[in-house]
């Protein structure tokens, strides 16, 4: 009896959480340019699948190119973050040196400063490097992450120290220790960081908006926002079609890697 009520609660909550997605899907199937459907008429009389054709196979908007761009950028950011963050985390967790705490504090401190203001100097820097409107502009500023260093350091700290000692006795140097011993056993944590980096990069909006300018360099999030503004106001059905299209890859990645999400966050909270 108790279980039944738990299931009931869980299911109700799931329905509540899923509502917006389901709504979005329904609206995307209404006729382009039609009014926002009333709640009772949310299911369209006839599904207008051609909205998906309009969005994905648009003559003027290279949506496929947007997907390729997002994919390239996300993949390189993930690879970069895994390498950059894990090597730093390795040094901070396993190599004793003077000023280690200070370096760690520096990483943590920068996490508190956020905001749209730093994007102006960032833009100037990227411009100095002649990277505007290239993949470098989208990839390079994200290949490191203080959050990633923090997450991996916590994980490395939990791995028993004895491994290091044994390896050193066998004559292994620090590189071997990092590359051959620590990284292989850290796959869950690396998976977590990779998953987060992928989603964060894929869904980023403001930086890709300013750092790219030609249509061929737009990412999915920015590129599809074109469908939001058309003459005569918001085209709700088409806009929701674009939202659903942009969402699908994120959902696929999430469902494939869901165990890393669920496990990873636990680590971050460890004392």
């Amino acid at each position: 009896m108790k279980n039944v009520s738990i299931y009931l609660g869980l299911t109700l909550l799931a329905v509540f959480l899923a509502m917006p997605f389901v709504w979005s899907l329904f609206v995307s199937l209404h006729e382009s340019r039609s009014a926002i459907p009333e709640f009772s008429k949310i299911v369209p009389g006839r599904p207008h699948w051609e909205n998906y054709k309009t969005v994905v196979l648009n003559e003027q908007v290279p949506v496929l190119r947007f997907f390729i761009n997002s994919l390239i950028v996300s993949v390189f950011v993930v690879i970069g973050q895994l390498f950059v963050c894990s090597s730093a985390a390795f040094a901070l967790a396993r190599l004793p040196f003077r000023g280690r705490d200070l370096v760690f504090a520096l990483f943590l401190g920068t996490m508190m400063f956020s905001g749209t203001v730093v994007q102006v100097p960032l833009y100037l820097i990227v411009r100095q490097l002649s990277w505007l409107d290239t993949y470098f502009a989208l990839i390079m500023p994200s290949v490191g992450s203080a959050f990633g260093v923090f997450l991996l350091r916590q994980f490395f700290l939990q791995i028993p120290r004895e491994i290091d000692e044994a390896a050193r006795l066998d004559g292994a140097n620090e590189w071997t220790l990092y590359w051959k011993l620590l990284l292989p056993v850290s796959k869950p944590a690396l998976g977590t960081l990779g998953a987060f980096a992928f989603i964060a990069t894929w869904t980023d909006f403001f930086w890709p908006l300013i750092a790219t300018s030609s249509l061929e360099m737009r990412t999915v999030e920015v590129g599809l926002s074109i469908f939001k503004n058309s003459y005569g106001g918001t085209n709700w059905p088409l806009q929701n079609t674009a939202a659903v299209v942009a969402l699908i890859p994120v959902l696929v990645v999430f469902l494939c890697l869901q165990r890393f999400f669920v496990r990873g966050i636990t680590l971050g909270s460890g004392k």
Partner: peptide, 29 residues
């Protein structure tokens, strides 16, 4: 045992942090 190569491991992250995080923050200040 003191490490000698720790800076090698820190260099990628530190250079990224300096160029894309600390420099913009310092510039903002």
């Amino acid at each position: 045992m003191k490490s000698r190569h720790h800076w090698l491991f820190l260099t990628p992250a530190m250079s990224h942090l300096s160029i894309f995080v600390i420099l913009p923050i310092a510039f903002s200040f």
